[in-house]
Write a protein that binds this DNA or RNA. Structure first.
Lengths: 344, 344
DNA sequence: ATGAAAGCGCTAACAA
DNA sequence: TTGTTAGCGCTTTCAT
């Protein structure tokens, strides 16, 4: 079935040696124009394509990098992937993408599987499970083998490798301050997937802003939970029992769900309650109303991670030159926040 | 740097031959329990892992499949990928994902690149560009080489391979009929990315439903265009000049944008105007209000495609047994349509 | 029970 | 200018 032609077959057909064919196809100066031409034409005619596997085996380089993604349905990760993909392609690398579905086991399996010659390096984001249980053995093993890893978004100090992250505390601080400046007095915060330290950092930023501007934090205005079950009920409950005029939603889903609740209650956004979101994704952009939110430059995150890894693979950076890159965020103003500001 | 141990090194260390090691590691009956144990222990101790590349070169099978995705930010595709990923993993296959960004050139390049030993088969969705220009040479070439391809979502009859698709006409027909049953008299339809035949089929289904129930199609109620620029303006314009009480939006973005327009105009959904969407994704689910829509079972699409391909790779189906699988759709009722129905 | 040798497709040092 | 040979890491006959 497989009709792919090999160098050997060309050699036989043309009555030359294998190495002559190899050299001719690589346009070596050693080969006469005449035979070169003959061989190249024959190769073209028969659609010769070098076998990537054989080449990789030879060079000990596969020119492909492994990407570990916890959940491809998360818009942020999909955009990171795109960023990675872009620079990988530019630099002639393939990517092999694996989705862990937030499972520790899957993460370990795939990473072990790939680190046997299939890939030159990893760009990875840990699963929630891995992070919770702090089981990092597989990362240590792989790094020890000399395979570079760049971690993005979710990281941990116990893993000594390159990292690309968002400054969550600072960004949340700025978001909260923005609400305060636009005259919100009672600001709530909502966070799902509370298991992630990332989200904890965001709440930290929120608290920091309150403290800084001398607002007493109110635990009744802080909703933290793991999934999205009952979230709308909890929000309703909070609104029933508290005065709220601004809500900082720490992830996309929370933002969308909060919008739904406010709309259902007939509350005007932003006049009655303003909303500010985090991770400016599709839900923020296409919501009703579109949400003001903290834009995370997912694409840049992917680009930076890929560049860093490839530079390492190509020995432009020594293996043990470890760095953590912090990707800035930017507030994108849309219709869910008020336009009048207090200076302070 | 790379400390990965090879079979050869084990052989040297233990003063046995390479083939003995190979056999021992594969638990061959030819090797004495004693040496087997010795070798296996040594291998374990030194974390020996067989080199995947070498194995693939030998077997002429890589156990990896190439996935071509036009745009990873499209929720539908991301979900298909997940479905593929799931069955691939179950059956011991890796996937190597490539994003074409709807570019013909990128599609050709990556597919050619991969079809040289790197992958055993493809699961692909053509770029818009490819489909528009009807340039299918690369598919023909690859199929001719004996590399199987399963096409999903966007297909063309000139490519003779397995396909997994949605019945767009029928689904659109049902969606439109649903609106009519819920007492909508003047139903508009909105479609972006009109370049795709898929969307044309959906409009066809809409027209079919109208005709069937003796409603005269009105061109003023049909918006078709390629991107999302000015879409909101056009919708507003349509609403200014026509009586409309139901809108069928043929893709997720149209649905979200239509919702925004209606909300901005203070039009009540579904009392004044009902909306029904297509491709039940994140925007429909988390919109305000959540949209009733045609659910496309993206996950199933991916699963079916992967199963089919792998069956072929493992010779459970002959290469030239070609089939087109049609994945059914299902209407998911949410808050954007009325609950009262007319029987007809 | 163990080992030598050939080969998967290719490159590269060395010989001719 | 062309060819021979060894080797990348591994499996698999075929000897021993």
């Amino acid at each position: 079935m497989n009709k792919r032609i090999t160098i050997k077959q060309i050699a036989q057909a043309l009555h030359v040696s294998i190495s002559t064919v190899s050299k001719a196809l690589n346009d070596s100066y050693e080969i006469s124009e005449e035979t070169k031409k003959k061989i190249q034409e024959y190769a073209k005619l028969h659609k010769y394509k070098p076998n990537t596997l054989a080449l990789s085996l030879q060079n000990k380089k596969t020119k492909t990098i492994g990407i570990i993604i916890p959940n491809i349905l998360t818009y942020f990760f999909a955009r990171v992937l795109r960023g990675i993909e872009k620079v990988a392609t530019e630099k002639g690398y393939n990517i092999i993408t694996c989705i862990t579905n937030e499972s520790y086991k899957k993460e370990v399996n795939t990473m072990e599987m790939l680190s046997n010659g299939t890939i030159d390096g990893f760009i990875a984001c840990m699963s929630v499970e891995t992070l919770k249980n702090k089981k990092f053995e597989h990362f240590h093993d792989i790094l020890e083998d000399g395979t570079p890893i760049v971690l993005y978004d979710r990281v941990h100090k116990d893993i000594n490798c390159d990292k690309v992250v968002t400054d969550n505390v600072k960004s949340a601080y700025k978001a909260t301050r923005f609400l305060m400046r636009s005259q919100c007095k009672n600001i709530a915060v909502i966070s799902t997937s509370e298991g992630l330290s990332i989200n904890k950092f965001r709440i930290k930023g929120y608290l920091k802003a309150l403290t800084k501007y001398e607002v007493e934090p109110n635990e009744n205005l802080i909703i933290r939970q793991d999934g999205e079950e009952n979230l709308k009920e909890r929000i309703n409950h909070m609104l029933d029992n508290n005065e709220v005029d601004g809500i900082f939603t720490v992830d996309e889903i929370s933002g969308a769900l909060t919008t739904q609740v406010l709309n259902e209650r007939g509350i005007k956004i932003p006049e009655d309650i303003a909303i500010i979101g985090f991770t400016n994704g599709i839900l923020s952009r296409y919501g009703s109303p579109p949400l003001t939110s903290v834009n995370r430059f997912a694409h840049t995150t992917g680009e930076v991670a890929a560049s860093r890894l490839i530079d390492k693979l190509e020995d432009k950076i020594p293996f043990d030159d470890i760095k953590t890159e912090i990707i800035r965020t930017q507030l994108v103003e849309r219709d869910s926040t008020k336009k009048m500001f207090i200076k302070f």
